[in-house]
Design a protein around this nucleic acid. Structure first.
Length: 298
DNA sequence: ATAGGCGCCTGCTGGC
DNA sequence: TGCCAGCAGGCGCCTA
């Protein structure tokens, strides 16, 4: 999917194009439906409403309406939310068309694989309840240091799995998990609870740094992603490990390796991202140690 | 608690 | 050339 940098780019593109304008009319165009489909009853509440803001929370796009309601979009793997002139040919897999007030432009939601969704919340409280129920973690740019250390220290999962968990931190996906771990020089299969304090801090800063840089490049376009104006991102040209299996590590020249972790393809440099920081050759002994520690703690 | 597998979808690539 | 398995930026659900 669009991960945080791509979603942020969409939001920044859409904001000036949508803020202050009215949603005149909404219609579903595709005979297929989205995972969370547009309900007819939402039309009455949304039609005629002015858009007060377009913001982001994790990978969710929030459109605030003047009546206090929210439209919430998730782009899934292939979602595109763009503002285009009405004359623009309708691309295949376009599911929703929002006519804007002056009749010259439309907000369109297109999603090839239909993993994306659209939701409606009548007020702020309903929206907050939704995020609370999802246990959505903090934004990566303001993760409290102690919270982060606690999250890692309390988890026996591998770092890759922890980074992908939206409850720990919101917005990181497969690409930026790999790129962040490379930036922090940490092996993706390391157990979270095995990290030293300095390593945990390094990872927290690495995630923010990588995401900021990706946002500055308008995110990464591998296949389907485009921003809110239809422009592609540029960060794919700066991937250091993601999708670069066999290619030389930009730091040391060693061939980038890949493996499967948390069900996802994972890329790393075996030289820059050593699994062990200290010389533990006996893995089983180390695992036992962590297990024992966990038992003592609980 | 956590890993692993599946399902949801369509489209593209690489191997045969 | 054609077919088919495998894979893809997400996520929720289930089982062991």
């Amino acid at each position: 999917m669009p991960e945080l940098p791509e979603v942020e780019t969409v939001v920044r593109d859409l904001r000036p194009r949508l803020r202050g304008r009215r949603l005149a009319h909404v219609r579903q165009t595709s005979r297929h439906t989205l995972r969370t489909r547009w309900l007819p009853s939402w039309n009455a509440v949304v039609a005629g409403q002015r858009i007060d803001g377009v913001t982001r929370r994790g990978k969710w796009i929030l459109v605030t309406l003047a009546n206090g309601a929210f439209l919430v979009f998730h782009l899934g793997m292939t979602g595109q939310l763009t503002v285009v002139p009405v004359a623009t040919p309708l691309a295949e897999h376009t599911h929703l068309i929002f006519d804007l007030d002056d009749g010259t432009q439309q907000l369109r939601f297109r999603d090839i694989r239909r993993f994306g969704s659209v939701r409606f919340y009548p007020n702020q409280q309903a929206l907050e309840d939704f995020f609370a129920a999802a246990h959505l973690g903090p934004e990566p740019f303001d993760v409290p240091a102690q919270y982060w250390r606690d999250c890692l220290h309390g988890s026996r999962r591998c770092l890759k799995a922890v980074l992908l968990d939206q409850r720990v931190v919101a917005g990181v996906g497969n690409i930026y998990a790999d790129e962040s771990l490379f930036e922090a020089r940490l092996h993706p299969a390391r157990r979270a609870c095995d990290l030293e304090k300095t390593e945990a801090d390094r990872l927290r800063r690495a995630v923010a740094k990588v995401l900021r840089r990706a946002i500055a490049r308008r995110g990464a376009s591998i296949r389907n992603y485009v921003g809110g104006s239809g422009l592609r991102g540029k960060y794919q040209n700066e991937f250091r490990v993601y999708g670069r299996t066999g290619a030389p590590c930009p730091r040391c020249g060693t061939a980038v390796e890949s493996l499967r972790l948390a069900g996802r393809s994972t890329h790393f440099c075996p030289m820059c991202q050593k699994h062990q920081t200290t010389d533990h050759t006996d893995k089983s002994k180390k695992q036992f140690g962590s297990k024992k520690l966990l038992r003592l703690r609980s």
